[in-house]
């Protein structure tokens, strides 16, 4: 982690000055989501519901998972209407 900055060095109003993506939260995970493209209908619900923006989807192709940031919460698997996402240990 970088050294904490002083009040003269940061923007005012409590605005975040570092992108949160630099914090790799993927290692918090116990279970990881695995998408079965056979069952996936590209509805985009997993992408919409993911609280950490860790489902990567361009709107055309099958979604993939950003495992560097996915914390393994399982919301995507819970929301998937075709049960295409399985939470797998490790």
């Amino acid at each position: 982690m970088s050294a904490l900055r002083g009040w003269k060095e940061i923007p005012i109003a409590g605005i975040p000055f570092e992108p949160a993506v630099k914090y790799k939260t993927g290692d918090w995970r116990v279970f990881r989501p695995v998408i079965d493209n056979e069952k996936c209908i590209k509805c985009g619900l997993c992408w919409m519901f993911c609280p950490d923006s860790s489902i990567i989807w361009d709107g055309d192709n099958f979604p993939t998972v950003d495992y560097e940031h996915c914390k393994g919460c399982g919301i995507c698997a819970h929301e998937c209407p075709t049960k295409a996402i399985e939470m797998v240990r490790g």
Binding site: R5, G6, W7, I10, P11, I12, G14, I15, P16
Partner: peptide, 27 residues
């Protein structure tokens, strides 16, 4: 601009713990 602007998104009012809250009060 220091404002909510879709062109340059920023967050206003997020969590600020003992690492930076004091600095924001100093400002």
């Amino acid at each position: 601009p220091l404002m909510l602007n879709p062109k340059y998104p920023i967050s206003i009012g997020p969590l600020d713990l003992y690492d930076y809250y004091f600095e924001h009060k100093m400002q």
